[in-house]
Design a protein around this nucleic acid. Structure first.
Lengths: 219, 219
DNA sequence: GTCGCTAACTTTACGACGCTAACTTGGTGA
DNA sequence: TCACCAAGTTAGCGTCGTAAAGTTAGCGAC
């Protein structure tokens, strides 16, 4: 792997006050977040680069984070703090359950594309490492889990309103989620592909989905 | 990163004959493929581990491959050589364009799940590194590109038969592809998640898609 | 038959990486 | 003022990808 290009070393940081160890912790998170966005690839953000950016030596990082993964994941968690809120807000703009659901989907996609590396780390790497959407795991999964729970709710509302055929809301939510994830992840990873306009593609996917879930027209 | 656990060192390999340098090349590919399947993670397959498995020193690898990425990608290409064929065969089992398309989709998903790390490397990592689905790039993209082209054809047949509303076949194919990719990639990455039965989920996604693409029932 | 060429390797080593263990420093409460 | 300990640093281990230079063995030419 190519070594991370050296960059902006901060001046040596003065030591924190007695109870203020967490100040460094916050600075480390901030620097990591910045580097992750700048370099766009977790592998190019080394512990040494982070330490350098903060103005501290590499081992100091380990006073505040168990290992590199823990640091990276915590940054991604922070980034995803507004994940569910964004979708709730977008959905709240519509009264119609179907339009609301679509708006939620568009917000999901927008968020992923706006935070591609965080999205990739949380949803596109082997989960033993990073996320455990299943069990009552750490906060990591929280944004994802509540966002999914809210999709389930939204689906239920669509069923109640008659826009969707009655069915297992979780199962239907998974059908929708995997669809949204599919576009986001391919748009993130296959940048070289001659994609059509993103908005058009996403809208069409959402339309296809909701039409496919509508009650049978026949008797 | 955890170091790759040492494993099965092969005895020192005897040097190849004068014109037979490619024998080693083939052995390297084979060993890499095996290690990639065994360890299930590209990062746990080091050049040294491959060299060890073949019974040769690490730098010898570079006589046959430009760098680690080139080696890994070539292995994935090999793995994906049957990707499109599998789908063509599955699709050929049905006369009905719609059933044929669904069978194609199931084959896509099956292949991805059967070769998770290869799928992850080719379709779930930043493409500057690995694949260039766009331009008349290397063979890498070939399996993916022809598979997509065949989805386009299948979509066109569905439109011709009246099963799908007439539309831009490429755009519709992308809607289908991203959907398939979504399930595959999440099933690969989020193993901890309490997924419903895979077959059921995939079938429902396919049903939702084809229903959503059917011509409007009204006049 | 032996000489030289070159394909097919090996040896050695560099710099970056994640991470650990042991040491230092400076502010603070007693 | 002095001992304590939070908040760091220094030094270093083992691994990684890979470059550069050295070695060896088979083969054609004479």
């Amino acid at each position: 792997m190519t070594p991370s290009t050296a960059a902006s070393a901060a001046p040596r940081r003065s030591r924190a006050r007695r109870g203020d160890g967490d100040l460094l912790r916050a600075e480390i998170l901030e620097a990591t977040r910045r580097l992750l966005v700048e370099r766009g690839d977790e592998e190019l953000v080394s512990i040494r680069a982070v330490a350098d950016a903060v103005g501290v030596t590499a081992p100091s990082i380990y006073l505040h984070f168990a290992d590199k993964d823990a640091l990276i994941v915590e940054v991604c968690e922070e980034t995803f703090r507004t994940f569910d809120d964004d979708q709730e807000q977008a959905a709240a703009a519509y009264d119609d359950p179907l339009e609301s659901l679509k708006a939620r989907g568009r917000a999901y996609v927008s968020f992923g594309l706006a935070n591609p590396e965080a999205y990739r780390i949380l949803f596109m790497t082997r989960s033993e490492r990073v996320i455990d959407l299943a069990g009552g795991s750490p906060a990591t999964a929280l944004a994802g889990v509540t966002a999914l729970a809210h999709i389930v709710d939204a689906v239920r509302r669509c069923m109640d309103s008659g826009a969707f055929a009655t069915d297992d809301p979780m199962l239907v939510a998974l059908q929708l989620w995997t669809g949204l994830h599919g576009v986001v992840s391919l748009l993130i990873c296959e940048r070289g592909f001659p994609w059509p306009d993103r908005g058009v593609l996403v809208d069409r996917i959402l339309d296809m989905q909701v039409r496919g879930l509508a009650p049978s027209s026949g008797p």
